[in-house]
Every structure is written in structure tokens, then in C-alpha cells.
Design a protein around this nucleic acid. Structure first.
Lengths: 362, 362
DNA sequence: AGGCAACATTTGAACGATCAAATGCTGCCG
DNA sequence: CGGCAGCATTTGATCGTTCAAATGTTGCCT
């Protein structure tokens, strides 16, 4: 504790060791600015929050003093009064074992940047289990620390979603509710995986590939099935070979993907293109093709650092667009949006195909 | 704007669409709890902040009411009064292109978890350039939004460091100041890279490898040179071949590392082990060995998701220990530590060697 | 001149907590 | 019995801001 105590009755009295962070120079407040500009508190406040109410000349005088004194509004005082924190809460997930954990990293960055542009901040919280997470959410939202929550990777009958809905805490999810039942209950933003795999497939077919397969995760999987649909759509559009024979399944591990692809290449000598549901799968497939000496053009998904490092083509989730959309849906001009009558708005972001030569370090 | 305006003079007057988030049920305050428990505000406050001052029986009565009413202290009100936010600010970096961006992700998670255990929160901010960053820091610290900052990856004569020092804003860095001049000016925590590469080298030598080289980044590089020192130390300890002939240099790109290693393998038919300054380098080296059909045992650094996915041995930075140390150094019992007379404390965290078989998906 | 609306600015009162000092309440000692 | 120390509890003030309502000020219309 660095606070100065009322001087315990010792006989020896040493001077304080070092100035214990007493407000060396007190930060200026609205009152200081007001006095300096010859106006009242409220006028200063208005200059910042409702400039339209203040006469041009007055406003300029106040603004000059604000910058001269280096005035910064005290965020906590403002929050206390307005009951609004201009802060979003984001749950940080246990770093995933898979190759694609970095997506969250990128998303966080985009979200922070987008939020900043709108005067919002991002606060993190980690939680061990769902119960713990609800406790955290409660603490943050009741303590008026955050205005709304952004959830990533929600599951089917997510307990957090239920709780947030029940308690009227505003939130949005990155990822649509695949279950279907919660469809209109909260806003969400997701990446249009189907459009991404469709574009990748078309690229391969239009580039001269004849037999383009799809390597995905075991069904059912909301995201995975959606990505397969894009491939199905593309091969149908071009009249290319499709159907069950042109698809493979593997868990999201490089090793398994490599084995599955190796067998597939043996069985199908004409296979010359492969669209995958993830970069892990794509990497495994790539290895299998290399080992078999086959010219297989592979495209992954998520454009993870691994794909970048190894020169693998991949479909990139535009986290910047996702983040911008999230803020659009969550906020309106003056704060967090309230529930509309006709159900929440949602948005699908088109991903972007990133092509690479296949050489590492590209 | 969801706020109700003083009714602009239109002729048609529709009722409000939906209750505009008026406090449906007002959150209980200390006063509510106090009344319910038959005590005063301050006693409730003391139960939470200085339990020793309150008599056992009273405390229990108050605690009962607190949980019965579901009371949560209002964070902003507390901050306004105490001038302390219990929040740490972390700069989020532009996602690095390299393979190792995920380290920050992991660190963030650890930091959030450690902070939580001590009642602290983590707030993010992103900035385009150093000047912008200083502006952000100023806003956050003047607005009493955060108590201290955690900086990652500081550079030599970092402008941010200078500014923070000049303005008496508490901060700590993950990563030591390699320059040397700022050495005692602020607390820092870093990973003992030298100990990591030493352990990795010893592991290879004691496992039967005869010629173990080191592949690093071009000198000078604080982190890189430190990691090379660990290798030097280990080969000296075991009397194994060392010196310039046993080291290689490459930028942190898989492709270049592959080329460098390929040439090296040609030149040195006995080379059978390689300790690398990063996973990117290790991966490149691995590829080169595979292509050349040589049994080269490679160990990387950082234990990135890529290493995990590809089954590469690597030296892991224990971000959990780093985060814990950061909080230890930054905080004491009651808040942010003040500058000590004799210079700041610092801490080096021992990394951990993670061994893998070399098969993908391990 | 009086009235009234529109605009510009000020004043008093919160927001919810903690600090600092005052007040009660014991019991002990001389 | 008075005085005083020590503990438990309460009271008044304050942190910096914005809200709501009051007060000035101006100009226009009748």
C-alpha cells in the first residue's frame, strides 16, 4: 500500500522514502477547463458531448483550453453517471491445440481496431468452464464494466447464450447458431464459408483441373457441411465430377489427412485438385501428394500463419470485415442497440481466396 | 440514439417501440445491502474491503444479504473514488506475418487468467504507429482506465518506453531491454532463451548425436544471440564440435532456412543435430533434411502451433509463468508497485523442452 | 411594449462507492 | 468516578461527470 498513513506513533520519524505517487500534478477536470474558458462545467461537457448546443465562438474557446490544459475526461466518472462503459467484453478461449488458433488472435486485433474507431474498448476475460464464465459475465455486466459481449465459437444449446438472453445482457456472436432454434434471438456475424469453397473450387476448375475433390470433417458439422456445400455448388455449376466419390473425411489433424489423401490418390489416379475445410487438412493432403509425386493443387481454409509460411493457397476469413460488421450490428449512433421487434439483424461476410505458389516462405 | 428526447414537435406521436432499456430492476447498491442488514453503508464497504474491522456476527449478516440480493460493487464508482482501475492495458500488435504470431495469443490468455486470479482485468488497445500508441496510452492512463501497461516486444530506444518513464506511468515489459541503457529503469520479465537452447543441445548430445549445429538469425539480434550462447555453452560443456563452422544464419523464413540447411548438409556429411532459434528455421531445416534423405534431429523454438501440428520438437516459452511473474513484479498487496530506490526487479523464466517424434499430428 | 419561442448557458442534484473523521460503546486503570 | 484506550460503527464529504431543470439572452411578431 503506497498510501500515506496517519502517522503511527513511533518515536523515530523518517521522511517518506520517495514521493509515493501522490497526484504529482492533478489532472485537470471539466471545472478547470470551465474556469479557464470562463464558462460553466456543463458547457464544457456540452462541447464534448453535444457540440450542436454550443455557440461557435464559445466552443472554440473551450476547445482551445481543453488542448492547452491537456484535459482528458475521466472515464470512470463518465461511466458512473451515464451508466455506459463503452467497453466490449470478449471471452478468451483456451489456446486451441489445432493449427488454427491464430484466427482468434487476428480477430481480436481487428475487433480492437474497429472498436477503437467507434470509441469503444475491448476487455478480455478468461474462464475455466461455462459456469465460471457466466460468473464472469455477471460480474462484468453488473459492475457496469462492459456494455455488451462478443462471443466466439458458440455451441448448439449454449448455456452462456441462454443466460445472456434471460438476463437481457446485450451480446453478439461471431459464428451463426447452427442449431436453428436461436436464429432470431441475437445478432450474429459469420463468414460465408460456402462462398469461399465455391470460389476456390471454381478457381481450380477454371484453371484447367478436371477432378477436384473436397476434403472435409466428419459430418455433421455446421461449419464443415456449409463449406462442402460450396464445393458441391461449384462442381454442379461447371458439370464437373462430384458426388460422394469425390469427397473425403478426416478429423482436423495433419497426420490423418495425409493418410486419407494418400489412399484417395491411389484409388483415383485422375484426382488433380482438392479443396479442404481447413489448413490442417490441406497441409496433410499436400504432404501426401508430395510423397506420392502427384501434381495435386490444394486449397485450404482460414489462411493461418502456417499456410502463409508454407506457401499454401487458402481461403481467408476477413476478420477486419467481421469486426466492422459486429460493431455495426451491435451499436447504433449512441450506444448499444436495443432488441428490435422483428428479430435481430445478421450478416454474412464473403471470404477471400488467397493464391500462393506452393513454395515455402512466399 | 436510444435515449428518449424531449419530444420534437411532430404532430404524430407513436408510443416508444420497446421499453428502451430503462433499468428494469435497479441493481442493488451498498445502501440497499446496508438497510437490509441493518447497518450503514460504510460497514458494508468494510466487509468487502477491510473485513478485519467488522465484528464476526455483523460481517456474516452483511454477507448473507449481499448474496441474497445479488449485490455487485459498481466498478466505475469504486474506480472514481479510489482512483484505481484494477485494469492492465495491453497493446495488441499487428498480427505478424511470421509463423510465431501465436505466441502473443497464448501470452494474452495466460495474462488474462493470472490477472483474474488477482482481481485484475486486461484491456486491449491497438495502434497504427508509435505516435498513435502514445496517444492511446495517454487516453487510457489519464482517463484512469488502466493502472499499468504491459508492453510486448519493445525495441532498442523505444519511444513508448521513454514516454512512459517521463510521465510516471507504471509499466512492465515482456522482453528485456537489450540495449543495456534502460536496464534498471523499469521492471521486465523475459524467457531465458539461453537456458532453453542449452537444454536442447545437451539433449541432442546426450542422446548420441555427435555434430550438433546452431541455426540462428543474422547477428546482431538480442534474442537470437542469446539463444546461440546457450548452444555454445552446451557444446563447450560436452567438448562437442563448435565454433563458426557449426553455426548457420538465415532470416526467419522457411524457404531461406531450407536453402541454407541444404548447403550446410552438403558441406558437412556428419551433421546430425540442429538447434534452431525459431520454429520457422527448424521447419525449413527439417524440410531440407527430408529432401536430402538425412537423419537430422531438429529442435525449434517457441513451440508454435505449427510445431505441434507437424510433430516438431521445440523449446516452449512458458507464458503462464511469464504472466504470473509479470503480475508479481507489477503489483504488491494493495495495487501497483511504486518505483524502488535500488532499481526495478526483473525475472527470467526457464523455458521447457518439448520433445516430439517428428510425425505430424502428434 | 408585451409576449413568446428558440437558443445559450448555468445551477443543483444525482451516479455508487470509499475516505476521513466523528461518534458510541466497552472495559480497564488509577 | 473520571479518563482514556481500543474497537465497532456511523456520518459527512468527495471523486468527475452528466442529467434535468432553471435561468438568461436574443429576436421576432402582434
Amino acid at each position: 500500500m503506497t498510501r500515506r498513513l496517519p502517522h503511527p506513533g513511533g518515536s523515530v520519524c523518517l521522511p517518506p522514502v520517495s514521493t509515493p505517487r501522490e497526484p504529482v500534478v492533478r489532472m485537470p477536470t471539466v471545472l478547470d477547463v470551465a474556469r479557464a474558458a470562463g464558462v460553466s462545467r456543463q458547457t464544457v461537457s456540452n462541447v464534448l458531448n453535444a457540440p450542436g448546443l454550443v455557440r461557435e465562438a464559445t466552443r472554440e474557446r473551450v476547445l482551445t483550453e481543453i488542448s492547452r490544459l491537456g484535459y482528458q475526461p475521466h472515464a470512470s466518472a463518465r461511466r458512473l453517471r451515464t451508466r455506459r462503459s463503452s467497453t466490449l467484453g470478449v471471452r478468451l478461449h483456451e489456446p486451441e491445440d489445432g493449427i488454427s488458433g491464430a484466427l482468434l488472435d487476428q480477430f481480436l486485433h481487428s475487433l480492437t481496431a474497429s472498436a477503437d474507431r467507434r470509441g469503444y474498448r475491448v476487455m478480455l476475460f478468461a474462464a475455466a468452464d461455462p459456469g465460471d464464465e457466466v460468473a464472469h459475465i455477471r460480474r462484468l455486466s453488473d459492475g457496469a464494466d462492459v456494455d455488451a459481449f462478443v462471443l466466439t465459437s458458440t455451441e448448439h444449446g449454449d448455456s452462456r447464450v441462454r443466460w445472456l438472453l434471460d438476463n437481457d445482457v446485450p451480446f453478439i456472436t461471431f459464428g451463426r447458431p447452427w442449431g436453428g432454434e436461436d436464429l432470431g434471438l441475437h445478432p450474429w456475424v459469420d463468414v460465408d464459408g460456402r462462398a469461399g469453397t465455391r470460389e476456390a473450387t471454381l478457381h481450380l476448375l477454371d484453371g484447367g483441373r478436371r477432378r477436384v475433390g473436397f476434403l472435409g470433417w466428419p459430418s455433421p458439422s455446421g461449419t464443415g457441411d456449409d463449406r462442402r456445400l460450396g464445393w458441391e455448388q461449384a462442381v454442379a455449376e461447371r458439370g464437373a465430377p462430384g458426388g460422394a466419390g469425390m469427397t473425403g473425411e478426416s478429423e482436423d489433424h495433419i497426420g490423418e489427412a495425409e493418410e486419407v489423401t494418400a489412399r484417395w490418390l491411389d484409388r483415383d489416379p485422375g484426382l488433380d485438385g482438392l479443396v479442404c475445410a481447413s489448413d490442417s487438412l490441406a497441409l496433410g493432403a499436400s504432404f501426401a501428394a508430395g510423397r506420392a509425386g502427384r501434381a495435386l493443387e490444394v486449397i485450404g481454409f482460414d489462411n493461418t500463419p502456417v499456410a502463409r509460411a508454407l506457401g499454401l493457397s487458402s481461403v481467408e476469413q476477413r476478420t477486419d470485415l467481421v469486426a466492422a460488421a459486429i460493431l455495426d450490428l451491435l451499436l447504433d449512433g449512441g450506444g448499444v442497440r436495443t432488441a428490435p421487434e422483428e428479430g435481430w439483424e445478421t450478416r454474412l461476410i464473403a471470404p477471400e481466396l488467397v493464391l500462393r505458389s506452393g513454395r515455402p516462405g512466399d
